[in-house]
């Protein structure tokens, strides 16, 4: 499939480029522009980013693959990033992951058939003080998880509601 940026995206990309002395530095924010537009950064999108910035495709691929926040394939509507790094692991991160997997009937790295949920196993998200935790689609953190809390979360999301949790803003990411 051929992906294209809109005129508006291209203007934003120009603005981003103007901020840095070298175009290479624009890789991360422009990948965000792409992910916001297409919902993922599949290889073809990575190529679009590379071509738009005049950077090697391999470089953009390397950057995209470094971060779990960039989706290198199409994901479900809600992406649940379960932290299994040290602190979360010690506080039961794997149990939470297992619970979630059983609940949704998929494994980490997979997406439910209805396209609603994807699970990813991720490294430390910097919220060790609230372990175990997970993050919803690069957005809300859901902290101090218990199986009940996870069940709640799924129901809320299924109902199309915003989970009521703290929201931490991230630059350049579209906050709904």
């Amino acid at each position: 499939m051929a992906y294209e940026f809109t005129e508006e995206d291209l203007q934003e990309i120009e603005k981003i480029k103007a901020k840095y002395p070298e175009v290479k530095a624009a890789t991360l924010p422009v990948l965000w522009v792409a992910q916001n537009r297409f919902g993922h950064v599949e290889p073809d999108v990575q190529k679009l980013v590379a071509d738009t910035l005049g950077l090697p495709q391999a470089h953009v691929h390397g950057v995209a693959s470094f971060y779990t926040q960039y989706y290198k394939e199409k994901k479900g509507e809600h992406v649940l990033d379960v932290c299994t790094c040290l602190s979360c692991q010690l506080c039961g991160g794997y149990d939470i992951l297992e619970h979630l997997e059983n609940k949704l009937g998929i494994k980490a790295g997979e997406t439910t058939e209805d396209g609603k949920f994807s699970i990813q196993e991720v490294e430390c998200l910097g919220a060790c003080g609230y372990a175990p935790m997970l993050q919803v689609t690069n957005d809300q953190y859901v902290n101090n998880l218990t199986p009940e809390k996870v069940d709640d979360l799924i129901e809320t999301l299924k109902a199309g509601k915003e989970p009521e949790y703290d929201q931490i803003g991230m630059p350049l990411r579209k906050v709904k």
Binding site: P56, A58, H59, H61, G62, S65, F66, E123
Partner: peptide, 10 residues
């Protein structure tokens, strides 16, 4: 040729 990159991390 910039053909190679390191992918993933850790």
């Amino acid at each position: 040729t910039h053909q190679l990159t390191i992918v993933s991390r850790g």
